[in-house]
């Protein structure tokens, strides 16, 4: 039973990342009709916003320590971060320690800006083109973005720890009646799950309870009619592209303590998230979230030794197997709307 509960927690955690990326993919597809294969790259750029924040906070002055030597036997150059000079050792170290959460403040404007530039500069020219063209150009864009990140940050994973207070793990089992040390779960993964729930809730609330969101939803349902009413729906959709980029970006920022960022991380998530979108139903926001969590949990269960001993390799194919079954039985996905990608 304890193993099942841990895998459910794992599944919710993985599902959080899938759901956040799939949510952004669906927002872009639902509003602009674009299949954005560069969305995984936006997740990756978000992760590198966290790396950038770490680098900014550790920008240092250099002094020579004549008593120590470097690997070549020369006097050692000692780096002292500016924040330590400015705020003292304790406060400075604490600020650096919180680099990952602080990176959200950097990621939101950066990602919105990147989203704007992507949409206005490239993707808008492909609105009326076939989905195959859109996939090709956005996939190419993803590779370009990857290479840019690799040029500046290298190919090696970069350690990006969570704040010290969240580095341990919670004895989750004692909260639900198990003996101590039976169900241990990392604090940061629980933080990530809670964070995802807040972001997903926030996006839904924004679309549901604001005038802007209402217009966007109306535009998603019937773009032409909204345009006839004199509303500049294109401008709002551009803003939604920026919002979707920001959602992917903050999802990437908060994921770095779980997965040390490297330039290729977006591709791994993109393929799975695209399957999530298809399973959830193209254009359906609740479908994307539901499918994200569902497939995350299924993938975790399929990784259990007991399951793998029955069906070797099932952990590698479960998501695609479920996608095939759902698309055979419900061609529009779990919550897909009629008419989307059917014309």
């Amino acid at each position: 039973m304890d193993a099942i509960i841990i895998q459910i927690l794992n599944g919710l955690d993985k599902g959080s990342a899938y759901a956040l990326i799939a949510l952004g993919l669906t927002l872009i597809f639902g509003t602009l009709g674009v299949v954005n294969f560069a969305h995984g790259a936006l997740f990756m750029i978000g992760a590198f916003c966290a790396v950038t924040m770490q680098k900014l906070l550790t920008l240092s002055t250099q002094t020579i320590d004549p008593e120590k030597v470097d690997f070549l036997g020369k006097p050692l150059v000692v780096d002292t971060p500016y924040v330590v000079n400015w705020f003292g050792p304790e406060t400075g170290a604490a600020i650096i320690d919180w680099a990952v959460p602080l990176a959200i403040l950097l990621a939101i404007p950066v990602m919105i800006l990147i989203g704007f530039v992507m949409e206005r500069g490239l993707i808008k020219h492909f609105y009326k083109r076939a989905h195959a063209d859109q996939i090709l150009v956005t996939f190419g864009l993803a590779i370009v973005l990857q290479e840019i990140i690799k040029y500046f940050y290298g190919a090696n994973p970069i350690p990006s720890p969570a704040p010290a207070v969240f580095r341990g793990s919670l004895d989750f089992g004692v909260w639900i009646g198990f003996e101590a040390n039976q169900i241990i779960y990392p604090y940061w993964r629980l933080v990530y799950f809670a964070f995802s729930a807040v972001i997903i809730g926030g996006v839904f609330a924004f679309l549901q309870f604001t005038t802007f969101g209402m217009v966007v939803r109306a535009g998603m349902a019937d773009r032409e009619t909204v345009g006839i009413l004199g509303i500049d729906i294109d401008k709002r959709f551009t803003l939604m592209f920026g919002l979707a980029a920001a959602v992917a970006g903050v999802a990437g920022v908060m994921y770095v303590p779980i997965l040390s960022p490297n330039y290729n991380m977006g591709m791994d998530f993109l393929v799975l998230s695209f399957v999530v979108v298809v399973v959830g139903g193209m254009g359906s926001l609740p479908g994307a979230v539901l499918a994200g969590f569902l497939l995350g949990i299924l993938q975790s269960f399929a990784s259990m030794n007991e399951i793998k001993s029955l069906i070797p390799g099932i952990d590698q194919i479960i998501i695609y197997l479920v996608a095939i079954i759902i698309l055979l039985t419900r061609p529009r996905g779990l919550m897909g709307r009629k008419g989307v990608m059917e014309g």
């Binding site: 895998q7 794992n10 997965l259 975790s300």
Partner: peptide, 13 residues
């Protein structure tokens, strides 16, 4: 694999 949590969790017990 990226996220190894599903493989690490069974180690615990």
């Amino acid at each position: 694999a990226g996220d190894f949590s599903s493989y690490i969790a069974p180690v615990l017990n």
